[in-house]
Design a protein around this nucleic acid. Structure first.
Lengths: 139, 139
DNA sequence: CCTTTTATTGTACTAATTGTATCATTGTCA
DNA sequence: TGACAATGATACAATTAGTACAATAAAAGG
């Protein structure tokens, strides 16, 4: 669950940009179970050296996967595979997990002495500021 | 009121720096009553060893909490939860803990692939059914 | 007891490692 | 050849680790 070698095969003639190839192959290795949630990916510089590529190209691949929430890149620390919503999980189980998650959240909030009003207000505010942040990202 | 074990859970995939995670969790344990005023926290080196982290990382977390007057760090002696949190501080802590709790909840829900709409709907439903249950209890 | 020594604890400063941002260069294709 | 996408170069910022130090407490010696 740590420090995989991460063997990638780049093909110059494929026509696909290098960063796309890197991103695709990491994603497919995750789907195939070669990479697992929690795994640390090589640093942008290490993988770049291995692939004989500029590290910004690797960083770009990582950024794509990060935006898709497949990995989590953290300045000063490294990049890690995140959990993925398992596609094989049924919609019913998915909903159930949200229900459970929500109940835990609300119970905890009540235990801290917050009112129903405070809780729903906080959820609204939080969702709103999140949406605004997303909008800013697109401008 | 002394020498708690202080169980913390670091998540490398959370995207938050370790020092932030440590500070947040100590703060929330105080709000939740797991830690109490006057409690001595582990030494920076002890907690660092336990978490497999450099002790400066723990020291940074402690410094953050110290600046917020939540703990008192004393060179040569140790670090302690502040004795009497001023009322405005404890109220602030209470609110901040709700913010943090809400953010964790929403992040987790998004990570599971739920939309903003689904999340807010689920919170509404859950609060509503809770209120109804409370009414039934009083009949 | 009091003083000196040693151990323990947090602090300060710096270095190393990591990802990010910005702009320049290259190459391809209409 | 001009525009645009891909890649490279360079400087930067954030996080964590390494080392030396200072303050306090505890232990030792007299």
């Amino acid at each position: 669950m740590e420090e995989k070698k991460l063997t990638l095969n780049l093909d110059i003639r494929s026509g696909l940009p290098i960063y796309t190839q890197i991103a695709n192959q990491i994603q497919s290795q995750l789907v195939n179970g070669i990479l697992k949630p929690g795994d640390q990916l090589p640093t942008v510089r290490a993988l770049a050296q291995e692939l004989r590529v500029n590290f910004n190209t690797v960083a770009r691949a990582y950024r794509i996967l990060d935006e898709e929430r497949i990995i989590s890149t953290q300045q000063g620390r490294g990049t890690y595979i995140t959990e993925i919503p398992p596609p094989e999980v049924s919609e019913r189980l998915r909903r159930e997990s949200l229900v459970a998650l929500t109940q835990r959240f609300i119970n905890e909030a009540f235990r801290l002495g917050f009112s129903e009003r405070e809780v729903s207000q906080m959820v609204r505010d939080n969702l709103k500021s999140m949406k605004e942040a997303a909008v800013n990202d697109n401008e």
